[in-house]
């Protein structure tokens, strides 16, 4: 699986508020990736970090890297207009520009300097067809776009986004304002387009994620909880918070009974210290440990299989530190 977008240790803050907390993730090429999670957990922020629309928010502070085709888009030298052109954005509420249907579709082409009338005409037909809107509007291309129904407007927005020939389509809950039929049409479009484009969708509709997604990212309160192939994450999630969210249960923070800081310690020393800490707990109690290298992280995660403890959450808290939350289980535990 080749990543199209690679997020490396991305954090976003608005003033004192942390919206995204050390997110590292790869978005696969030519697949539909769904970002799921409750409202206000940073889904849209993550999406808008991909085309740097985040920069427009006053007071937003971004750290970390986002690589698109291996190129860091937060590099000061990045040409924003070309970067954004590579990504079509569909927002929550369809936003047509105050001009005709035709002008909406060719807007992006015009601002990039295309003047040839016949090329523009061709583009209008091609992309309206691709968005499955052509037959409905072909006789009134020069009417104002705001007269279209809201579902048609969203398809027009899709055509407008496709017209600049992006590689990536970003959808920020693109069907949430639409009626079921229009939503279905948009979903069908996504399925039809996914062989040509990398599609990233923010959605809070689980069924939509199930219908569309190949890959799923679950965010909760700015933390990346779980990600992986859709069938795995959605049907047998590994972590407790993901399970709770998928089942519609209330997501609780874990009551931590003990903590162990393994940062900076000698590596050979670690298993001993770790097991000693666990031994002091009774079954079902929750234990938090802090590590600062990935090797150690792997070792601890293997415990779930090896010793039967339950890893509840792994959370990156800085560029080199991880927090692992483990529930002690007695079953299968042996020294």
């Amino acid at each position: 699986m080749r990543p199209h977008i690679s997020v490396k240790d991305l954090s976003v803050q608005y003033g004192a508020l942390t919206i995204l907390n050390h997110i590292s993730i790869d978005i696969p090429d030519k697949k539909i990736t769904a970002i799921i999670g409750p409202s206000g957990c940073g889904k849209t922020t993550l999406l808008k970090s991909f085309n740097r629309l985040l920069d427009l928010q006053e007071g937003a502070k971004v750290s970390g890297q986002v690589l698109v085709d291996g190129e860091d888009i937060y590099d000061p030298g990045t040409e924003m207009t070309h970067l954004r052109r590579r990504m079509g954005l569909l927002s929550q509420k369809p936003t047509v520009l105050p001009m005709s249907i035709y002008e909406n579709v060719v807007y992006g082409l015009r601002i990039h300097g295309e003047k040839n009338k016949s090329k523009l005409d061709q583009a209008v037909e091609k992309y309206l067809r691709e968005a499955n809107l052509w037959n409905e509007v072909k006789d009134r291309l020069h009417d104002s776009a705001s007269r279209l129904s809201i579902g048609q407007q969203q398809r027009l927005c899709l055509a407008r986004g496709l017209a600049v020939e992006p590689e990536i389509i970003l959808g920020d809950e693109p069907t949430s304002a639409l009626d079921p039929v229009s939503a279905e049409q948009i979903e069908q479009r996504f399925l039809a387009l996914k062989n040509q484009y990398t599609i990233v969708l923010v959605t809070h509709i689980l069924r939509q994620a199930k219908r569309l997604a190949d890959y799923v990212i679950f965010l909760y309160l700015g933390n990346l909880i779980e990600h992986g192939p859709a069938e795995k994450v959605l049907s047998s999630p590994r972590f407790v918070k993901t399970q709770a969210y998928l089942e519609g249960r209330f997501i609780e923070e874990f009551p931590i009974a003990a903590e162990l800081d393994l940062c900076g310690g000698a590596k050979q020393d670690f298993p001993f210290r770790f097991e000693e800490s666990l031994r002091g707990l009774t079954e079902g109690q929750i234990f938090k440990t802090l590590v600062d290298n990935e090797g150690l992280l792997r070792q601890i995660l293997d415990l779930e299989q090896g010793q039967g403890h339950k890893v509840l959450e792994v959370r990156q808290i800085s560029s080199t530190q991880w927090e692992i939350i483990i529930e002690k289980r007695g079953i299968g535990y042996s020294i």
């Binding site: 085309n51 936003t95 992006g108 601002i111």
Partner: peptide
């Protein structure tokens, strides 16, 4: 003029001046 509308123009690769000229002024 709504942020969403500005966002549309910028997301399609408009420069700020293009956005102001073609979206804000028109609106």
């Amino acid at each position: 003029v709504s942020f969403g509308m500005r966002e549309v123009a910028l997301a399609l690769g408009a420069t700020k001046w293009q956005m102001v000229k073609t979206v804000v002024l028109r609106k």
